[in-house]
């Protein structure tokens, strides 16, 4: 596989973008940063499919397409199904020798938002994982249905206000915890599962390359701050991801073969979660005195999760 050099940014920047501008994602959206990074990680041909979501509606505004690779969209939930179908077809045609270039390496990638990964497309993703096709699924996790106006998804963390779980006099927003999708996918026996963040570009690129190189179904959850629904200034996208990884609300780690957990990034100064929450408008109500206990709960959850991750890293189970 022709992987590109990620030794330093200068060398990485010699890659030619295969994701074009003039898509209609919001200014400062992290989706396109992640997609660009994935496509710059390799020189191989890519077959990409996307679930319905911000990425899909914004990059295929008829009559334009922003993709310089093969790209397919079918329904809301079936990016995983579409890409595994293409993968099987490619395998069969390679065997029969009916491809134009039989030796050209091809990688299969599916993109989904958190709505289509955690909720709507979950069954399809789980099925594709179980069938063991050679593809990489990348979840762009912005913690709500941003495309349709910021409804709650099962990726929305506790305490965040969304248009269907609103904070007010009687509510502090969403009351349930976020689903632990990374562990669920690792439990499928996937050879490579990771949670990555765009602010550490090298770690993310390394993770992408590892997932593309690994044979079998790989899953990567990436943090994608949504300036519209998280309510922060577009220019702060990278600063928010910095806060997210340093406050450990989004720890970066990988799980190999379902049991070998490696923590990829240990922040030197672990920040209090207030710094992360305070930077976003969707958590503004939590700073009222009556909801102080929610912040304490979020902090204790994070501490418990971090301790659990470290135990898992040591125990290798």
């Amino acid at each position: 596989m022709a992987i590109t050099s990620i030794k330093n940014l200068k060398e990485f920047s010699t890659n030619n973008d295969r994701f074009e501008g003039a898509h209609t994602l919001c200014p400062g959206c992290a989706h396109s940063m992640i997609v660009r990074e994935l496509m710059n990680c390799t020189d191989d041909n890519l077959v990409i499919s996307a679930n319905t979501g911000c990425l899909e509606v914004s990059t295929a505004v008829y009559p334009f397409t922003s993709w310089d690779t093969s790209w397919i969209h079918i329904g809301f939930e079936n990016a995983a199904t579409a890409v595994t179908g293409s993968e099987v077809m490619h395998k069969v045609r390679k065997k029969k020798g009916t491809l134009k270039d039989n030796d050209a390496p091809v990688k299969f990638v599916a993109f989904g938002g958190d709505g289509s990964t955690f909720d709507i497309g979950f069954q399809w993703l789980s099925g594709a994982m179980e069938r063991g096709h050679d593809f990489t699924y990348i979840c762009l996790d912005n913690e709500n249905y941003a495309n349709t106006g910021g409804q709650r998804s099962s990726a929305t963390p506790i305490g965040a206000t969304t248009s269907t779980a609103q904070a007010g006099t009687h509510s502090y927003g969403k009351k349930e915890k976020k689903k632990d999708i990374v562990s669920i996918m690792a439990a499928h026996g996937s050879p490579y599962v990771a949670q990555l963040s765009p602010n550490k570009w090298k770690m993310m690129a390394k993770g992408f390359q590892k997932a593309l190189e690994t044979e079998g179904p790989c899953f990567i959850n990436t943090v994608s701050p949504c300036c519209t629904e998280w309510k922060f200034d577009p220019k702060d996208t990278i600063a928010i991801t910095d806060l997210a990884t340093d406050s450990l609300i989004f720890p970066m780690y990988e799980i190999i073969d379902g049991h070998e957990l490696n923590i990829l990034y240990r922040p030197k100064n672990i920040l209090k979660v207030e710094d992360y929450l305070g930077a976003q408008g969707r958590y503004k109500h939590l700073f009222k005195p009556e909801y102080k206990h929610i912040i304490e709960k979020i902090q204790s959850d994070i501490d418990a999760d971090w301790a659990r991750l470290q135990r898992r890293e040591e125990a290798r189970v």
Binding site: L9, K10, F12, F19, S32, M33, E37, T237
Partner: peptide
């Protein structure tokens, strides 16, 4: 340093030969 290139969401930074 190419920080702008890697994080530009709109592929709008023109970098050629490092």
């Amino acid at each position: 340093c190419q920080n702008c290139w890697v994080w530009c969401p709109d592929s709008s930074i023109l970098s050629r030969d490092k």
